[in-house]
């Protein structure tokens, strides 16, 4: 099963559950407060996911390490390498 199919299957399942509950297709006659919760649930879930996504990406951007030391070390090694290679007869 491709990832696309997995997503479609999950969406179909959730969508069916939501339709059943919010339009009471099975005649469960859920209490009124429950129905008031279920009806806008997809929007809530989207908002929660949006917040989660923004918070996660924000956190990861903020904590992505800047490797100043690695850049310095590389610059030093570049100088060292050029000196050594010139000594061995390499023309750059």
């Amino acid at each position: 099963m491709t990832k696309l199919m997995e997503w479609l299957a999950a969406a179909a399942l959730l969508g069916a559950a939501w339709l059943t509950l919010s339009f009471d297709l099975l005649g469960l006659s859920l209490p009124e407060p429950w129905r008031r919760l279920v009806w806008p649930l997809p929007v809530y879930l989207l908002l929660i996911f949006g917040c989660y996504a923004l918070a996660t990406v924000g956190f990861r951007v903020a904590t992505l390490r800047d490797c100043e030391d690695a850049a310095r070390e590389l610059q030093e090694q570049i100088r060292e390498a050029r000196k050594d290679l010139s000594r061995r007869g390499l023309t750059f």
Binding site: V57, L64, R65, C67
Partner: peptide, 12 residues
């Protein structure tokens, strides 16, 4: 792990 030489836009 980490990066060097990336601005904020690139990181985002």
């Amino acid at each position: 792990g980490g990066v060097y030489g990336w601005d904020l836009k690139r990181k985002i």
